[in-house]
Write a protein that binds this DNA or RNA. Sequence first.
DNA 1: TCATATGTTTGGTATGTGACCAACATATTT
DNA 2: AAATATGTTGGTCACATACCAAACATATGA
Lengths: 140, 140
Amino acid sequence: MPDITGLELSPKKVEYLKFLFKKGGLVRTTDISTQLQVDPSTSTKTIVDLAETGLVEHIPYRGVRLTEKGLKYAEFLVNRHNILSLMLSHYGLSAEEACQETSRFESLVSKAAIDKICTSMGHPMASVCGKIRHVSCGVP
Amino acid sequence: MPDITGLELSPKKVEYLKFLFKKGGLVRTTDISTQLQVDPSTSTKTIVDLAETGLVEHIPYRGVRLTEKGLKYAEFLVNRHNILSLMLSHYGLSAEEACQETSRFESLVSKAAIDKICTSMGHPMASVCGKIRHVSCGVP
DNA sequence: TCATATGTTTGGTATGTGACCAACATATTT
DNA sequence: AAATATGTTGGTCACATACCAAACATATGA
């Protein structure tokens, strides 16, 4: 697989993948639309889009699930979110603030930067938003 | 004017304003298109757009300049950029990396967050990208 | 098993941002 | 004032995201 830059997905698609990761298994498109507060038709379309990238498998009328590749990628996305939130929380932002703030811009932060931040923080195991798993960040 | 949230402008418009701030005075739309590497027609249109927000004054065939309001806002934008770059540089990113990375996502970071980061860093006077002026960040 | 209710997808359309090209308008230089 | 530079407008396009209405699939209960 080509290397992850961290910039391959649009903001919304990042949200979708993180949600799929958190739920795990087969997820109904309606669950997504409820969670992300969009019309069901919107979530279906986005999922069909994502399926074309090979990150998810869409079984029409049944649901969606992350592929192997998607799982790996989503893991990075969740880690990125957690690392950034943790970083912001070190500057006086509350857990909620840090998490919200991060959600707004995370899709534009490169994996290269995340790896450096993560290293510099000593590969922390936990963030304000959840555990951190160092699968793809170049931890020794 | 209502308070600055930091999220009022699109990424490109932020770039335009920062550029106008750095150049200062009356700037030709062609200067902008050269600098930002877009077609001159694109920069003209964006400027016309910005003019409608009252942040810049556009004198057709002559150039653009920041209004009072735009100057204030651009000052915040530049500070935000500098604060974020400085922050990233503390995590092992080089000056160039920090600056580039910041450019990608800065438009999505709120003023509220910046104020906290700035406070937490002790209102530094200089970043890796230039001086910082604490006009609007609530410095004592 | 058929009818219906519920859930999902498709088709059409809209908005915002940002981009380009070609044609036109203005300013500058000669 | 004509020729050349520079700047603007109009048209169109691409992409992301969104909604609605209609069509369709699946599940349920008669």
